[in-house]
Design a protein around this nucleic acid. Sequence first.
DNA 1: ATGTTATATGCAAATATAGGCATATAGGCA
DNA 2: TGCCTATATGCCTATATTTGCATATAACAT
Lengths: 137, 137
Amino acid sequence: MRANSKAEILKILGDQTRLRVTHLLAASKKSLCVCEIVDALKLPQYQVSKGLVMLRRAGLVEVDRNGTWGYYHPNMTDDANAALFDFVKDYCVGEPFDSDIDALTGRLKLREGDKCVVGFVPEKKLRNLMRKKGIAA
Amino acid sequence: MRANSKAEILKILGDQTRLRVTHLLAASKKSLCVCEIVDALKLPQYQVSKGLVMLRRAGLVEVDRNGTWGYYHPNMTDDANAALFDFVKDYCVGEPFDSDIDALTGRLKLREGDKCVVGFVPEKKLRNLMRKKGIAA
DNA sequence: ATGTTATATGCAAATATAGGCATATAGGCA
DNA sequence: TGCCTATATGCCTATATTTGCATATAACAT
């Protein structure tokens, strides 16, 4: 846990990209792979990655690495953080937050054994991939 | 209500001065006079004033003017705002937030008929003023 | 080894923000 | 009228932040 002031933490959330990432992690009950977040938010990979670094440095999220893959989840060991994530989950409604959740839900169907097994999947490919896997949209 | 994104609103709270002002308004059940906020936070008047302007433009607070005096209070007509203020009240604990509340509590004892009747009161004068009024610290 | 993929990071330009000071505005009061 | 006080604001400078691109790192596959 770092010595970030509450204001510094809120400032980190005061950015559309980082708030969308935070909301996705707060709303999803799973640890999310970076590529899943990138696909759900349809943002450049470096933006998501930089956002995650800031969230991690602020003690808000934690990462489990599995080879080159990184799974992020909220750090709930701190009560203030838990309250923050609860708040974000409820506060961030409407667009683009709702669509982000929808896109993530679809993307998670590509998992196998609850693990991410594909990298970045441009929207075009998603349909084909899911048909190939015999998964309904 | 303005068309501020959630991220824009959180960015406004992501500043120590504005967060302290917001917390003071969230925690106090009263409308607060600008000079009371300035005295409680011991910040330059222009900083508090600028902060209040930003909070007001974001639709977070409202002001009732009474002559030259301005009384600010959270704008609770919006459910998302109400949740935000609830969150801030609980999230902002420790310093300087606790001391801010203490200082405000003392400062509010100078009110008469629940109205602010003195302007800026440098800490030195506060004691004398309260003795003169026969109020316990 | 070589290539491919997932993720992180260094750098530079454009832009935004905070902080401070002085001053404006405007109401109350002598 | 003129003075005092409460509050707001314009301007400036220093500093921080965002964004985009290119590239680094590191694991894995062939």
